[in-house]
Amino acid sequence: MREKLIEFRNVSFRYGEEEPWVLKDVSFDIYKNEWVAIIGHNGSGKSTIAKLMNGLLFPQEGEIYINGQVVNQDTIWDIRKEVGMVFQNPDNQFVGTTVQDDVAFGMENRGIPRDEMIRRIDESLTAVGMQDYRLTEPHRLSGGQKQRVAIASVLAISPQVLILDEATAMLDPKGRLEIMSTVSNVQDRNELSLITITHDLREVVQAERVIVMNEGVIWDEAKPREIFAKKDRLREIGLDVPFIATLADELNKSGLRISNEPLNHEELLEDLWTLHSKM
């Protein structure tokens, strides 16, 4: 049985007394070392969930536990050591004048000794492939590179969970690939849970589990393959379906029976090949 890292228990949240509920009675668990993608239309409550996880916001109803510890005003400083977050805009989260200063910032705030800091700067920059840029100024970096430094800064705190809140949305395709390969590398090598909040279907397909939010409630929670099997219903709530899943659907309608809900090119070609050899 996997160990629980994050627990949401009947969480409801709204931004003000007169405002509509953004989250309504939301409950779910996230396990240690698990990769979970959270998807949903804009305004579905995805980012609110992220901000509740590290105490940037507090729920009006329900409780949130990180490692069994309830999130409240008294625990947020402990909680934030465990929950690292990277946001959408690479230009809004760079605080240092050089790459290494930026990575050091979070550690300085936590009073980590200098020798330890130097070791961790080295480690975390190497993990994201930015070790050659230690002394580079932020404005000389591309968007993808800035986001990698942001990830390194979070890793230096060695949290138990890394949340990427649309961290690739402002990057070009090359920057997106950089980030996703960096992240899966880092997760392979460390004890780390990963939560990616995203509209990018390729990112969703990589996750172990997907939580689909719709109008403040959990609409579904399952493996990517099971989620994308519900194509028409996903489209109804404003979400997209990978090209391969759409094509498999159309192939089925045209009389070629594709059985396994393929998620990538290789899987669909394999299914077609099996059919082909039976023709």
Binding site: L247, K253, S254, L256, M279
Partner: peptide, 20 residues
């Protein structure tokens, strides 16, 4: 369109199959 593509794939495979 994806629908057209699916039909073309189906055709192509059927024809290849009947030639073998």
């Amino acid at each position: 369109s994806v629908k057209q593509l699916a039909d073309e794939i189906q055709h192509a495979m059927k024809e290849a199959g009947s030639h073998e």
